[in-house]
Write a protein that binds this DNA or RNA. Sequence first.
DNA 1: ATAATGATTGGC
DNA 2: CCAATCATTATT
Length: 214
Amino acid sequence: MNAEFSYPPLAPEFFCQPTDVLAYALLGQHVVHVTASGISAGRIVELEMYRGPDDRGAHTFGGRRTPRTAAMFGPPGHAYIYFIYGMYYCLNVVTAPSGIPEAILLRALEPVTGIELMAARRGLAVGEPGSPAYRNLANGPGKLTQALGIGQSLYGVPLWRPPLYLAKGVPVPTAQVARGPRINIPYAQEARDYPWRFWIQDNPCVSRPPGALR
DNA sequence: ATAATGATTGGC
DNA sequence: CCAATCATTATT
């Protein structure tokens, strides 16, 4: 069993940094979810930032404040979770001070703890580390929430303590961070090409091969 | 009340 | 390439 996850939670103040700084700082950190079934956790290897109200790709473009997007207007370090395409949840880390709706979408994790639990939730067989089955556990925004058992009930929760928290990992040197356009926002016009997707260069668990810049 | 659509995934 | 599947949102 998982007695305790050995990585300590990040401090609440960690989230009080500009969104672009946090985009780099979050890579290499861990996402941990504690449930009655056990602990599952993964290392963040890919993410995207959304900066409303000026970002056409963001749910908060134009300052749209609805029940769904409310968390994005709240204080940093909380979970913004939304249901998409009738079947998947996406997990975001709210950033920027209250009133400024910015967030970072977590797009892919490298499995670290609770592999069997993650595989069971995904309906997959447990694979060896490095195998295709292993990579497939959390290499996408919908896959990672499914693997960690994250749903709407965690909407708005703080991310510095259980049951859902970010835990200290090894920061990724800027030189190892690749950037490119965000995925699946063809309607976003000029914002479509902003290089606001960040991932760890050459990491096998990123959601899709690079169309990289830098 | 109704219609359109999506920060995805998996299968053909 | 395209269907699955439904909450959210805007519109009537």
